[in-house]
């Protein structure tokens, strides 16, 4: 748990070794290696309720975890064939670049630097987020504009760290950053009073607030200071794998839009006459084969993992302690931003 420094250095070292020795990149090699080893190696958060968190039985749960499972369901036909690698923010990209993991689904913000300079591709947006501030009600602060002079706990290696710098600079306010390697450490420091404020993506603030000694005494300030589209990430140069990760996520959103869920999918598959539904569930056409997976890939995802709405509700929505509203993450036709290209 506490050896993350050494771990991250070793990850970096492994990454270097990987890049020093690796041969040229071949399109399709990730898909082949996943099929031959029989599981998807997925990089997730070390512990963020609602996104990726191991429960008391050691079973990984969360909306990011569900994306990994959906990919396993699509490629291998079995959503349980996933091995998880918990990663800190600092370690995540090196782990992906070096080939230690097949995909990264770890509340990671899509930015131009990451797309262009890190040799990775974002395959879509699992969750539309924005950065906010968590403060103790005792301070009597009502707005982020009143935070001049505050000490702020933050996790290192995140866009959060940079947004905070921008925000305080733009508003000509002073602040003291206290930077931790893990979200948990930053929250613990905030809880013990080392900082006045904890800053992170708003979803994380709600998630981490549950872990505080007395969650009721803490308040998420209304300001959202950034755009944080979080999504799964793959290595550049392997388009086949990029496609399947991208479309596994789209499949979940399309399934919600077309009203298919884990409860009714078996029934609908037997009875449907709708050509769009038939295409989605692989009864017509060779969409799966084109993606180099079996034609019933969407059926596997929906029956084993569920559609986007189910995953959202169970992990971060009303069915979870986080109780976050759909908001930006509602479907486009319900006024949100979740929009998937059609399966056609």
């Amino acid at each position: 748990m506490r050896t993350s420094t050494r771990l991250s250095v070793s990850v970096a070292a492994v990454a270097m070794a990987g890049i020093l020795w690796a041969g040229p990149v071949n399109a399709g090699q990730t898909m082949d290696s996943v099929k031959s080893k029989g599981f998807v190696q997925c990089g997730v958060n070390t512990g963020l309720p609602g996104f990726s968190n191991a429960d008391e039985k050691g079973h990984w749960r969360g909306i990011d975890v569900d994306v990994c499972r959906a990919v396993a369901a699509a490629v291998l036909g079995d959503a349980t064939k996933v091995k998880f690698t918990p990663l800190t923010a600092k370690e995540r990209f090196t782990a992906l670049q070096s080939g230690e993991i097949d995909m990264l689904s770890r509340n990671t913000t899509w930015t131009v630097t990451r797309d262009a300079a890190l040799g990775v591709h974002f395959a879509g947006v699992t969750y539309y987020d924005g950065q906010g501030f968590l403060v103790n009600k005792k301070l009597g602060v009502k707005s982020a504009k009143e935070l001049d002079g505050a000490s702020i706990c933050v996790q290192t290696g995140t866009t959060t760290e940079l947004n905070m710098g921008d925000y305080f600079r733009a508003n000509k306010m002073q602040y003291t950053p206290v930077v931790f390697e893990k979200g948990d450490e930053a929250v613990a420091a905030y809880d013990s009073g080392r900082c006045d404020v904890f800053t992170s993506d708003q979803s994380q603030l709600y998630a981490q607030r549950i872990k505080l000694k007395s969650p009721k005494n803490h308040l998420v300030l209304p300001e959202v200071i950034s755009k944080e589209p979080l999504g799964p990430v793959v290595r550049q140069g392997d388009d086949e794998w990029f496609n399947i990760v991208k479309w596994s996520l789209f499949a979940m959103v399309n399934a919600e839009e077309m009203g298919v869920n884990s409860q009714n999918v078996a029934n609908i598959r037997k009875t449907t006459q709708d050509p769009a539904m038939k295409r989605l569930l692989g009864l017509e056409g060779d969409k799966g084969k084109d993606l180099k997976v079996s034609n019933d890939w969407v059926f596997n995802i929906v029956s084993q993992v569920g559609n986007y709405a189910e995953s959202f509700e169970r992990n971060v929505g009303g069915g979870s302690p986080l109780n976050i509203a759909r908001g930006l993450n509602a479907l486009w036709k319900d006024g949100g931003l979740q929009y998937a290209p059609p399966v056609r």
């Binding site: 991250s8 970096a12 990454a15 600092k90 990451r114 890190l118 290696g157």
Partner: peptide, 10 residues
Amino acid sequence: GTVLNQTGQA
């Protein structure tokens, strides 16, 4: 730590 992560140039 931070610089490595923000630039990705391990």
